[in-house]
Design a protein around this nucleic acid. Structure first.
Lengths: 144, 144
DNA sequence: ACAAGTATGCACCTTTTGGTAAGTACCCAA
DNA sequence: TTGGGTACTTACCAAAAGGTGCATACTTGT
């Protein structure tokens, strides 16, 4: 009597080998992707990292204007977290109208590199994404 | 005089050319990265996409157990959004103990590919990330 | 003298997000 | 008959995240 349940568990399920396995290594993270997400989640963090990677050291005000729609409070907050996580470096020039700039650390730079494909994906599929969001919007206004 | 303020605006600032410019194309998105983020933000979405890319079509319950710590409500919710955004496909087998599975669409698959570097980054730098988080934790408990 | 720009800090509030616990309808195994 | 598994749904709540507006202290431009 078939106590063999191998047919109920996922059958070999020819995995698409085009994506490498992401296995857990350290306690506290389910996998590498999880670890990354802990560090980049924050509405503006990826944008900040990417901007710094493109433009090099940037003053606070310039960053503020580049990352559109962010508020001071949140921008500062995310910059502090990125700094605490070792991804960016804050340089205070101790000048008298304050002057500060932010730049990527090597770690931050490597992360920004990893963001490149996401950026590319978004650029390539922006039309699709845009369409879907438009539909959702009309939907919501109709139901509201 | 000197109404020329080109020295006050960011000077050529030799950009690190190792990261491609991410320029806005469509209204509503500041850039490609922004577009991507709209679609993958959600605590578990990248994990779901990556899991499906690794393991192929997966039943709800299996996914639930794979994405550790997610609640039913949120998992379902994120699956619905991913489906609405055209990244995954839900298949209902209409069987009587319900049977449903989720798989990536081509679009979802391409996005999962773009997540690979993030996953790799996390795996490679997990030690650093872990350290930083541990420090933050002791900090918080001390101050609490 | 006054407004504007510099990089923040803080109090307060709203929105968004996520979690808990219960329920559903049906089946199978003990 | 009880308990567990399937794939959800719903109502309610807590926490996290983000936004607004005001304040600072000093300078430069008008």
């Amino acid at each position: 009597m078939s106590s063999d349940r191998s047919d109920l568990l996922s059958p070999p399920a020819q995995a698409q080998a085009d994506v490498p396995r992401c296995t857990p290594n350290l306690p506290g993270f389910t996998c590498g992707l999880d670890a990354t997400l802990r560090v980049v989640s924050g509405k503006w963090k990826p944008l900040i990292l990417y901007f710094l990677a493109q433009d090099g050291p940037t003053r606070y005000g310039e960053l503020r204007r580049a990352v559109r729609d962010v508020s001071d409070k949140v921008l500062i907050q995310q910059l502090k977290e990125l700094e605490a996580d070792g991804l960016i470096k804050r340089t205070d020039y101790k000048e008298v109208p304050p002057r500060v700039d932010y730049s990527l650390t090597p770690l931050g730079h490597s992360l920004a590199q990893a963001l490149v494909p996401l950026c590319t994906w978004g650029t390539e599929h922006m039309a699709e994404v845009s369409r879907v969001f438009a539909e959702r919007a009309t939907w919501n206004t109709k139901r509201q």
